[in-house]
Design a protein around this nucleic acid. Sequence first.
DNA 1: CGTACTTTTGAATCGCATCAAATCTGGTGG
DNA 2: CCACCAGATTTGATGCGATTCAAAAGTACG
Lengths: 228, 228
Amino acid sequence: MLCAVGFDQYDRNHMDKPLERLDWPSLTANVPAAALIPVGLRNLARQVSAEAGMTLFRTGDPVRSIYLVLHGEARLSRLDRHGNAIILQRSRGGFIAEASLDIRNYHCDATVSESSSLLMFPASAFRSALESEPAFRRGWQSQLASEIRKLRAQCERLSLNGAEDRVNHYIESEGTNGVICLDQTRKSWAAELGLSHEALYRALRRMQDAGWLSVEGNQLTLMPTRRS
Amino acid sequence: MLCAVGFDQYDRNHMDKPLERLDWPSLTANVPAAALIPVGLRNLARQVSAEAGMTLFRTGDPVRSIYLVLHGEARLSRLDRHGNAIILQRSRGGFIAEASLDIRNYHCDATVSESSSLLMFPASAFRSALESEPAFRRGWQSQLASEIRKLRAQCERLSLNGAEDRVNHYIESEGTNGVICLDQTRKSWAAELGLSHEALYRALRRMQDAGWLSVEGNQLTLMPTRRS
DNA sequence: CGTACTTTTGAATCGCATCAAATCTGGTGG
DNA sequence: CCACCAGATTTGATGCGATTCAAAAGTACG
């Protein structure tokens, strides 16, 4: 399912929209991270499209570009010893693999999980802009710190024993006021929670039966009556 | 076991060594992160000592200081709904809670797990130094990125199902060439691995019996014969 | 020497992973 | 439009492994 060639080779043939057509102001409504990019760096961006399953880069590839997901979703993953992919990051409307900016080679694989459009920035120009643009740099540091907090929450969640506790923790930490609208399939969510999809289905069922959770399509609501 | 007052109040009575006595060059041998600190910021540091169990700050406290662990160990933790502490970070010879620099209030508790000495930097001066000192800023960004990679490895580990797989992953990713010297008790390590301490003991036993792991005190060695 | 904590082993229980299978869903091509 | 297909969703049955409770032995520290 994965593309056999790296994105750096592929995209030369598939760059579809000239960059001039990019409506930057309206872009930043859906992709707040785009607002950070200074104008000089914007002009060096290449806009690319990718189909589901395509590979952006692989473990060991040199870090030449920084990717910003405009629409769709990109994922960072690694294979465990049994060959199962473990998802390390999921980005919708933001950067992917921010932490690779200061290393030479990637430590993970990055793929696109649905039809997506992205911006690619040359890594060297990206680093220079961070040096010369204080506002950009502050925003970037803030992104890194925010990613750290998110990952700590993920670790906290994965160290909970029960499936129901993980669901509860996810909704409370990733949602707003006990409500969340899932942006992925349940199967994929199960993997993010470190559960088999069957275990997740059953946990959701139990929580509904206990009157603890309300499910309407992709919108999940924790009932205030039994919130911890 | 936790100290009833915040560290900001406590330390005024317990600052033991005048800062002048700090031997910065020799310090950086054990605490590489200290080498990043520009001289101007060094002079604003307060050196403090803390006994095992003392609290540095609590969830909700305003972020006034940045802590650097010189000797000993500091931990970032949160309580789950059952009242069990979950360790989110463990720092020996480095910064603690780096990601809190750009937020107003802490999201975790920080405690000292053994007799330790630390440096406290005023958060505002720390932020100014990051603005004005390019080398310091680069080092800091690199620290943040490194913390992200470490947390991703931790998430990857916690999403492995078997106890033996987690032990194996820990030694391979935190150790060097399949060898690691534990810097904590096994009980504490078990919690970091998301396991009960009994499960960890049994996993270690099974791995030894299988000739897969060699244990000599705190030094664990994965046998090359059966490395994945 | 006593105390608190870690280390270690045992036994019972519970929950999740796994395998299996049926249904539902969205998207594709005839 | 309908048939079809791949993948997601959902439920059931089974086994294993981790948690839990219990207890003994070892260890560090005052």
